[in-house]
Simulated scan of single mutants.
Amino acid sequence: MERDCFVYIVTNRLRGTLYVGVTNNLIRRVWEHRLGLVPGFTQKYRLRRLVYFEHFSDFGHAIEREKRLKRWRRDWKLTLIEKDNPQWQDLYPRIAHSEGVDTHVPY
Results as ranks from 00 to 15, higher is better:
G16D: 05
M1W: 09
K67E: 03
G16F: 14
L26A: 00
V30D: 03
W72L: 09
K44P: 01
I95P: 06
R3F: 14
M1R: 12
R94C: 00
N85G: 05
P106Y: 10
R48F: 00
T11I: 12
E99T: 00
D4Q: 13
V105I: 15
R94H: 08
F56A: 02
L35W: 05
D58Q: 13
R34M: 05
E32F: 02
F53D: 01
F59V: 14
V7Q: 07
I95G: 04
L18V: 13
R29K: 09
E66D: 06
N25R: 08
L91A: 06
A62T: 11
H104F: 13
V105F: 05
T11Y: 11
V30N: 02
H97L: 07
V30L: 02
S57W: 14
Y19N: 15
L26K: 10
K83W: 02
V20M: 11
Q87K: 13
W72T: 01
P86Y: 00
R15F: 02
F41Q: 07
L14F: 15
H61T: 10
F6W: 15
Y52N: 04
D102G: 01
D58P: 02
R68G: 00
Q43T: 07
R49F: 06
G40S: 09
H61D: 15
Q87M: 12
R94G: 05
T23W: 01
R29H: 06
P106R: 05
V30Y: 00
L26R: 07
Y19E: 13
K44R: 13
H33R: 01
R34S: 02
Y45P: 03
S98D: 13
R46M: 04
R28I: 00
N12L: 04
V30C: 00
D58G: 03
L37I: 02
Y92L: 12
I81V: 15
H55N: 08
Q87G: 08
Y45I: 04
R48S: 12
R34P: 01
F41N: 07
G16T: 08
R3Q: 15
E54R: 12
L18T: 06
P86N: 04
T23G: 03
G36Q: 05
A62V: 08
D4W: 05
Y92E: 01
W31R: 15
R28L: 09
I63K: 13
G60F: 09
M1Y: 11
H55G: 01
Y52P: 01
Q43W: 09
E64W: 04
L14T: 08
Y45V: 04
D102I: 00
Q89K: 14
M1H: 12
A62Q: 04
F41A: 03
L35G: 11
E66P: 00
R74D: 03
K77W: 06
G40D: 11
E99V: 00
H61A: 14
Y92K: 07
Y52A: 06
K70V: 09
Y8N: 13
D4S: 15
T23L: 03
T11V: 12
M1Q: 12
H104G: 03
K83Q: 09
L78C: 03
H55P: 01
V22R: 07
